[in-house]
């Protein structure tokens, strides 16, 4: 009997979780990203309904979501994979396009301060829109303070260089997309 108990205890104690327990950041999830964007860009008390940009219903669950089983409360589907990356890409492309189109006809309702920044940026490629203050205000409005200064600098320099002659609608959409697809925006720290 002792042998059996010993063996049972061994099996219990020594079967450690297998290797490759790589620590990796996961996506924040659609709910968290929607909330962040609403807080930063939407009027207080009127959050965005960003679900319209998801390519299909239930897809938010594939982008990272909390689930409960008994006493277990786990975040699921947050590890980047080819499918959730495809869905993020489709959803954030749609959102970015809507922000860009807001230069000509409002697609989303923004709060006052962001609207001021957006209107200034919508003069692109005029010099007023290429102003450091305008660009930084737009960056921080969307990204928040999740990324380091070097990320902002890389983003700013890229658009000043590569989008110098593009339309405002296209540029604002691309700017928004580039920010929201940045790991600093999408991943949990």
């Amino acid at each position: 009997m002792m042998r059996a108990l010993r063996q049972a205890t061994c099996v219990a104690l020594l079967l450690q979780p297998a290797g490759a327990l790589a620590q990796s950041s996961q996506f924040k999830g659609w709910a968290a990203v929607s909330q962040e964007l609403s807080i930063r860009l939407a009027p207080q008390g009127h959050p965005f309904d960003l679900d319209e940009f998801l390519p299909s219903r239930s897809m938010d669950e594939l982008l990272g979501t909390w689930t409960t089983f008994g006493t277990e409360h786990r975040f699921r589907n947050g590890m980047p994979n080819a499918l959730n990356m495809t869905i993020w890409h489709a959803a954030l492309s749609g959102f970015a396009k809507a922000v860009g189109q807001s230069c000509t006809s409002p697609r989303l309702v923004f709060h006052e301060r962001f609207l001021t920044t957006l209107h200034a940026l919508c003069a692109w490629p005029a010099p007023a829109a290429r102003d450091e203050g305008v660009l930084f205000a737009f960056w921080t409005s969307v990204m928040g303070y999740n990324a380091g200064e070097h990320e902002y600098a890389a983003w700013r320099d890229f658009f000043l260089r590569e989008y110098a002659n593009q339309s405002a609608t296209e540029t604002v959409a691309a700017m928004t997309f580039a920010i929201t697809m940045n790991p600093s925006f999408l991943l949990n720290r």
């Binding site: 990796s24 996961q26 999408l186 991943l187 720290r189």
Partner: peptide, 14 residues
């Protein structure tokens, strides 16, 4: 670090 690992996964997935 975790961010770097997550970003690598993002890159591969993309």
């Amino acid at each position: 670090g975790r961010m770097a690992a997550g970003a690598r996964r993002m890159l591969t997935s993309l």
